[in-house]
Protein backbone atom coordinates (compact mmCIF):
# COMPACT_ATOMS: atom_id res chain seq x y z
CA UNK A 1 0.00 0.00 0.00
CA UNK A 2 2.80 2.35 1.06
CA UNK A 3 4.71 1.46 -2.08
CA UNK A 4 1.72 2.39 -4.22
CA UNK A 5 1.35 5.79 -2.52
CA UNK A 6 5.08 6.47 -2.89
CA UNK A 7 4.90 5.57 -6.57
CA UNK A 8 1.97 7.94 -7.09
CA UNK A 9 3.79 10.74 -5.27
CA UNK A 10 6.86 10.13 -7.41
CA UNK A 11 4.84 10.23 -10.64
CA UNK A 12 3.07 13.42 -9.54
CA UNK A 13 6.39 15.01 -8.57
CA UNK A 14 7.93 14.12 -11.93
CA UNK A 15 4.92 15.50 -13.84
CA UNK A 16 5.09 18.77 -11.88
CA UNK A 17 8.86 18.97 -12.44
CA UNK A 18 8.51 18.45 -16.19
CA UNK A 19 5.66 21.00 -16.43
CA UNK A 20 7.76 23.53 -14.48
CA UNK A 21 10.71 22.80 -16.79
CA UNK A 22 8.60 23.31 -19.92
CA UNK A 23 7.26 26.61 -18.53
CA UNK A 24 10.80 27.85 -17.77
CA UNK A 25 12.04 26.84 -21.23
CA UNK A 26 9.07 28.54 -22.91
CA UNK A 27 9.51 31.73 -20.89
CA UNK A 28 13.27 32.02 -20.58
CA UNK A 29 14.77 29.22 -22.70
CA UNK A 30 17.78 27.23 -21.57
CA UNK A 31 20.70 29.03 -19.99
CA UNK A 32 23.20 28.45 -22.79
CA UNK A 33 26.89 28.43 -21.88
CA UNK A 34 28.66 31.72 -22.65
CA UNK A 35 31.03 30.14 -25.19
CA UNK A 36 28.08 28.84 -27.20
CA UNK A 37 26.04 32.03 -27.22
CA UNK A 38 26.81 35.27 -29.01
CA UNK A 39 29.40 37.18 -27.00
CA UNK A 40 32.21 39.67 -27.21
CA UNK A 41 35.81 38.57 -27.35
CA UNK A 42 38.38 41.09 -26.19
CA UNK A 43 41.90 40.11 -27.25
CA UNK A 44 44.54 41.82 -25.17
CA UNK A 45 48.13 41.55 -26.35
CA UNK A 46 50.31 42.02 -23.32
CA UNK A 47 53.66 41.16 -24.84
CA UNK A 48 54.74 39.63 -21.56
CA UNK A 49 53.82 36.62 -19.46
CA UNK A 50 50.84 36.86 -17.14
CA UNK A 51 49.00 34.79 -14.56
CA UNK A 52 45.44 33.74 -15.40
CA UNK A 53 44.46 34.32 -11.77
CA UNK A 54 45.42 38.02 -12.07
CA UNK A 55 43.37 38.42 -15.25
CA UNK A 56 40.45 36.66 -13.56
CA UNK A 57 40.62 39.09 -10.63
CA UNK A 58 40.72 42.11 -12.95
CA UNK A 59 37.74 40.74 -14.91
CA UNK A 60 35.81 40.22 -11.67
CA UNK A 61 36.42 43.84 -10.73
CA UNK A 62 35.50 45.14 -14.20
CA UNK A 63 32.60 42.93 -15.22
CA UNK A 64 31.17 42.05 -11.80
CA UNK A 65 28.69 39.18 -12.08
CA UNK A 66 28.75 38.94 -15.87
CA UNK A 67 29.74 35.60 -17.35
CA UNK A 68 33.43 35.69 -18.32
CA UNK A 69 35.63 32.98 -19.86
CA UNK A 70 39.36 33.66 -20.20
CA UNK A 71 41.49 31.85 -22.74
CA UNK A 72 45.20 32.02 -23.44
CA UNK A 73 45.98 33.07 -27.00
CA UNK A 74 48.84 31.44 -28.94
CA UNK A 75 51.64 29.52 -27.28
CA UNK A 76 53.72 32.22 -25.65
CA UNK A 77 51.22 33.19 -22.95
CA UNK A 78 51.63 36.86 -23.83
CA UNK A 79 48.10 37.49 -25.10
CA UNK A 80 44.72 36.74 -23.59
CA UNK A 81 41.18 36.46 -24.97
CA UNK A 82 38.53 37.66 -22.56
CA UNK A 83 35.11 36.36 -23.54
CA UNK A 84 32.24 38.26 -21.97
CA UNK A 85 28.51 38.28 -22.71
CA UNK A 86 28.70 42.01 -23.48
CA UNK A 87 31.02 44.86 -22.57
CA UNK A 88 30.09 48.52 -22.32
CA UNK A 89 32.49 51.30 -23.31
CA UNK A 90 32.93 52.08 -19.62
CA UNK A 91 33.87 48.48 -18.85
CA UNK A 92 36.32 48.38 -21.75
CA UNK A 93 37.99 51.57 -20.51
CA UNK A 94 38.13 50.22 -16.96
CA UNK A 95 39.61 46.95 -18.21
CA UNK A 96 42.39 48.77 -20.05
CA UNK A 97 43.03 50.97 -17.02
CA UNK A 98 43.31 47.99 -14.67
CA UNK A 99 45.51 46.05 -17.09
CA UNK A 100 47.79 49.06 -17.58
CA UNK A 101 48.01 49.45 -13.83
CA UNK A 102 48.86 45.77 -13.30
CA UNK A 103 51.31 45.32 -16.17
CA UNK A 104 52.75 48.83 -16.47
CA UNK A 105 51.39 49.40 -19.96
CA UNK A 106 50.06 52.53 -21.65
CA UNK A 107 47.45 50.92 -23.86
CA UNK A 108 44.13 52.47 -24.87
CA UNK A 109 40.78 50.89 -25.74
CA UNK A 110 41.71 51.29 -29.43
CA UNK A 111 44.64 48.92 -28.92
CA UNK A 112 42.28 46.09 -28.02
CA UNK A 113 40.89 43.74 -30.64
CA UNK A 114 37.19 43.43 -29.94
CA UNK A 115 35.17 40.94 -31.97
CA UNK A 116 31.60 39.85 -31.73
CA UNK A 117 31.62 36.07 -31.75
CA UNK A 118 28.34 34.67 -33.09
CA UNK A 119 26.52 31.87 -31.30
CA UNK A 120 26.78 28.16 -32.08
CA UNK A 121 23.27 27.05 -32.91
CA UNK A 122 21.87 24.36 -30.60
CA UNK A 123 20.67 22.47 -33.66
CA UNK A 124 24.23 22.46 -35.03
CA UNK A 125 25.51 20.53 -32.03
CA UNK A 126 22.45 18.31 -31.79
CA UNK A 127 22.35 17.40 -35.53
CA UNK A 128 25.38 15.05 -35.57
CA UNK A 129 23.82 13.01 -32.75
CA UNK A 130 20.45 12.47 -34.45
CA UNK A 131 21.58 9.76 -36.88
CA UNK A 132 23.60 7.58 -34.45
CA UNK A 133 21.06 7.96 -31.64
CA UNK A 134 18.12 7.04 -33.94
CA UNK A 135 19.95 4.01 -35.39
CA UNK A 136 20.95 2.85 -31.89
CA UNK A 137 17.40 3.25 -30.57
CA UNK A 138 16.00 1.32 -33.54
CA UNK A 139 18.44 -1.58 -33.10
CA UNK A 140 17.97 -1.74 -29.33
CA UNK A 141 14.17 -1.70 -29.63
CA UNK A 142 14.29 -4.34 -32.38
CA UNK A 143 16.51 -6.50 -30.18
CA UNK A 144 14.15 -6.14 -27.21
CA UNK A 145 11.11 -6.91 -29.38
CA UNK A 146 12.74 -10.12 -30.70
CA UNK A 147 14.41 -11.27 -27.50
CA UNK A 148 11.38 -10.75 -25.27
CA UNK A 149 8.67 -11.67 -27.76
CA UNK A 150 7.26 -14.16 -25.24
CA UNK A 151 6.56 -11.32 -22.83
CA UNK A 152 4.03 -8.63 -23.76
CA UNK A 153 6.32 -6.83 -26.26
CA UNK A 154 4.21 -3.76 -27.00
CA UNK A 155 3.58 -3.06 -23.32
CA UNK A 156 7.24 -3.72 -22.58
CA UNK A 157 8.54 -1.33 -25.23
CA UNK A 158 5.90 1.31 -24.44
CA UNK A 159 6.86 1.24 -20.76
CA UNK A 160 10.57 1.39 -21.52
CA UNK A 161 10.28 4.32 -23.93
CA UNK A 162 7.96 6.21 -21.56
CA UNK A 163 10.24 5.71 -18.54
CA UNK A 164 13.40 6.75 -20.40
CA UNK A 165 11.63 9.77 -21.91
CA UNK A 166 10.38 10.86 -18.47
CA UNK A 167 13.88 10.53 -16.99
CA UNK A 168 15.42 12.62 -19.79
CA UNK A 169 12.71 15.27 -19.57
CA UNK A 170 13.12 15.40 -15.79
CA UNK A 171 16.89 15.96 -16.12
CA UNK A 172 16.38 18.66 -18.76
CA UNK A 173 13.77 20.30 -16.53
CA UNK A 174 16.21 20.38 -13.61
CA UNK A 175 18.85 21.93 -15.91
CA UNK A 176 16.35 24.55 -17.11
CA UNK A 177 14.91 25.37 -13.67
CA UNK A 178 18.27 25.60 -11.90
CA UNK A 179 19.62 27.66 -14.85
CA UNK A 180 22.59 25.33 -15.22
CA UNK A 181 24.49 26.42 -18.37
CA UNK A 182 23.69 24.12 -21.33
CA UNK A 183 26.73 22.54 -22.95
CA UNK A 184 26.90 19.93 -25.75
CA UNK A 185 28.22 17.37 -23.26
CA UNK A 186 24.72 17.08 -21.80
CA UNK A 187 23.77 15.02 -24.84
CA UNK A 188 26.42 12.50 -23.79
CA UNK A 189 25.24 12.51 -20.20
CA UNK A 190 21.62 12.01 -21.32
CA UNK A 191 22.74 9.17 -23.63
CA UNK A 192 24.52 7.50 -20.70
CA UNK A 193 21.45 7.90 -18.49
CA UNK A 194 19.18 6.49 -21.21
CA UNK A 195 21.51 3.56 -21.94
CA UNK A 196 21.98 2.82 -18.23
CA UNK A 197 18.23 2.85 -17.64
CA UNK A 198 17.76 0.61 -20.65
CA UNK A 199 20.36 -1.84 -19.24
CA UNK A 200 18.61 -1.94 -15.85
CA UNK A 201 15.27 -2.73 -17.50
CA UNK A 202 16.89 -5.27 -19.79
CA UNK A 203 18.25 -7.02 -16.72
CA UNK A 204 14.72 -7.09 -15.25
CA UNK A 205 13.27 -8.38 -18.51
CA UNK A 206 15.84 -11.18 -18.53
CA UNK A 207 14.69 -12.22 -15.05
CA UNK A 208 11.05 -12.07 -16.18
CA UNK A 209 11.92 -14.16 -19.21
CA UNK A 210 13.57 -16.83 -17.03
CA UNK A 211 10.52 -16.85 -14.75
CA UNK A 212 8.25 -17.15 -17.77
CA UNK A 213 10.29 -20.07 -19.09
CA UNK A 214 10.24 -21.79 -15.70
CA UNK A 215 6.47 -21.36 -15.53
CA UNK A 216 5.92 -22.84 -18.99
CA UNK A 217 8.30 -25.72 -18.17
CA UNK A 218 6.34 -26.47 -15.01
CA UNK A 219 3.10 -26.40 -16.97
CA UNK A 220 4.51 -28.78 -19.56
CA UNK A 221 5.67 -31.17 -16.83
CA UNK A 222 2.29 -30.98 -15.11
CA UNK A 223 0.45 -31.70 -18.34
CA UNK A 224 2.69 -34.75 -18.96
Amino acid sequence: MNKEINKKILILGLILLIIAGIVVVLLKGFNVDLMLESHEEITYKLGKEYELKDIENICKEVFGNKKVVIKEVEFFKDAVAINVSSATDEEKAKLVEKMNEKYGETKTVEDLTIDTIPNVRIRDWINPYIKPVCISIFIILAYIAIRFRKLNTIKLLGNLILKIAVTILAILSIVAILRIPMIPNYITILTIVAVAECCVYLSKFEKNLVEEKNKSNKKKKASK
Binding site: K131, C198, C199
Partner: peptide, 17 residues
Protein backbone atom coordinates in the same frame (compact mmCIF):
# COMPACT_ATOMS: atom_id res chain seq x y z
CA UNK B 1 26.56 -9.04 -21.15
CA UNK B 2 22.89 -9.73 -21.86
CA UNK B 3 22.08 -6.61 -19.83
CA UNK B 4 24.62 -4.33 -21.47
CA UNK B 5 23.73 -5.09 -25.08
CA UNK B 6 22.52 -1.45 -25.53
CA UNK B 7 26.04 -0.29 -24.57
CA UNK B 8 27.51 -2.50 -27.28
CA UNK B 9 25.04 -1.18 -29.86
CA UNK B 10 25.93 2.43 -28.97
CA UNK B 11 29.65 1.58 -29.16
CA UNK B 12 29.43 0.13 -32.65
CA UNK B 13 27.07 2.73 -34.13
CA UNK B 14 28.90 5.72 -32.61
CA UNK B 15 32.31 4.40 -33.73
CA UNK B 16 31.34 4.68 -37.39
CA UNK B 17 30.19 8.28 -37.23
Amino acid sequence: YLSIIPVGVVAIIFTFM
